[in-house]
């Protein structure tokens, strides 16, 4: 069965070209991709992830708020009972923040400059494993 990915844009930045490209690349790699549109609240992202029962929640964040937005989303997912969902983060993530995100429970981080091919390969590897949440 195809794996399901939620591509979400939390927070206030409205630049979704990257998110849409990622959605398209994942579709072409055989994923079922749910796209939410821009400016989503973390609590709502978690609710959508539960309703859609996705394998991966992908957060696209370019605003610099990746640490707080990711934390809120992971908390909301846990509250919704979605403990076995991978969370990945893409966008403008400074090198030093990757380890902070991973420590929060994020499964993988894709800073700007990651190729789509790389992203697809790593997402495929992710759905074959259970997240450590």
């Amino acid at each position: 069965m195809p794996a399901k990915v939620l591509v979400a844009k939390p927070g206030l930045d409205g630049h979704d070209r990257g998110a849409k490209m990622v959605a398209r690349a994942l579709r072409d790699a055989g994923f079922e991709v749910i796209y939410t549109g821009i400016r989503q609240q973390p609590a709502y992202i978690a609710r959508i992830a539960a309703q859609e029962d996705v394998d991966i929640v992908g957060l696209s964040i370019l605003s610099g708020a990746h640490l707080s937005m990711t934390k809120k989303t992971i908390d909301a997912l846990r509250q919704a009972g979605a403990n076995d969902v991978h969370v990945i983060v893409g966008g403008t993530v400074p090198t030093g923040d990757t380890s902070k995100l991973l420590a929060m429970g994020v499964s993988d981080v894709f800073p700007t400059g990651t190729t789509l091919e790389e992203l697809v390969t790593r997402c495929k590897a992710l759905v074959a494993t259970s997240p450590e949440v």
Partner: peptide, 18 residues
């Protein structure tokens, strides 16, 4: 071709998420 899909209907239904 790929077996994948983009499920985008939610974009127009975003107002109900709350």
């Amino acid at each position: 071709y790929s077996g994948g899909a983009i499920l985008g209907d939610r974009v127009r239904m975003a107002s109900h998420v709350g």
